[in-house]
């Protein structure tokens, strides 16, 4: 994975803006930011971000590749779209944040252990396996992501809710054994592989 990173560095040299424009979803919008700071002021999580969208855009223009891609700021985005609604230049800021996060992840340099990133990974793996989200397994893998002890502790804490859901037939305990999936699983995996191939080709990630 880190190959992709060194390739990208070699390819774009100092022009990080160009790299973002070509490889990050909606990245071509970054140059249109006029640095008014409305996004930073509108973000409900703003105080918890190390770099506001405004700063991230400025850093991209200033060629701070490493700092941007290893930042955990864009992982903090909750997709509330407040910034998108308010941006006077109509930048799709939310999408750019996700684009940056996904690109950093693809290069393998996104921050390790970042909770949003971990959850997204678990969710995707769960979904990609059978084409259906296995909620029981998703929940359990989330509980146990930090080890057995904390997993048991969390599971015990959530016990009554889990039982309630079983009683109400919202949760099938049998899902623990494989669980349900798509009919044409092979075809589904082929689609995902092809989609990735197309995206990689478009972004030059070969």
């Amino acid at each position: 994975m880190s190959d992709h990173n060194s390739q990208a560095v070699a390819r774009y040299r100092n022009n990080f803006l160009k790299e973002v424009e070509e490889r990050v979803e909606e990245g071509e919008w970054v140059k249109m930011c006029m640095q008014c700071g409305v996004c930073a002021g509108s973000c409900p999580f703003g105080a918890h971000w190390q770099h506001s969208p405004q700063k991230l855009f400025m850093m991209i223009r200033a060629g701070k590749r490493e700092e941007v891609l290893t930042s955990d700021s864009m992982w903090m985005c909750t997709s509330c779209y407040n910034c998108v609604v308010r941006c006077p230049r109509q930048l799709p800021i939310t999408h750019i944040m996700h684009g940056l996060a996904s690109y950093a992840h693809r290069l393998g340099i996104a921050p390790k252990g970042q909770p949003t990133r971990e959850f997204a990974k678990i969710f995707w793996d769960n979904l990609a396996k059978k084409g259906r989200v296995n909620e029981l397994k998703l929940t359990l893998s989330l509980y146990f992501k930090d080890g057995l002890v904390s997993g048991i502790k969390t599971a015990m804490g959530m016990q009554s809710i889990g039982l309630g859901m079983v009683k109400a037939k919202r949760l099938n305990p049998m899902e623990i054994f494989g669980g349900h999936g798509l009919k044409d699983l092979k075809g589904f995996h082929a689609i995902l592989a092809k989609a990735r191939e197309i995206e990689d080709k478009r972004k030059g990630l070969t």
Partner: peptide, 24 residues
Amino acid sequence: DLRVPGMGEDFYRSAQEKGVIFTK
């Protein structure tokens, strides 16, 4: 502070589209 009175805002946007970098 970028000050573009009149219809300058359109001109500013056009420059950003052309890839002129504005650094505060």
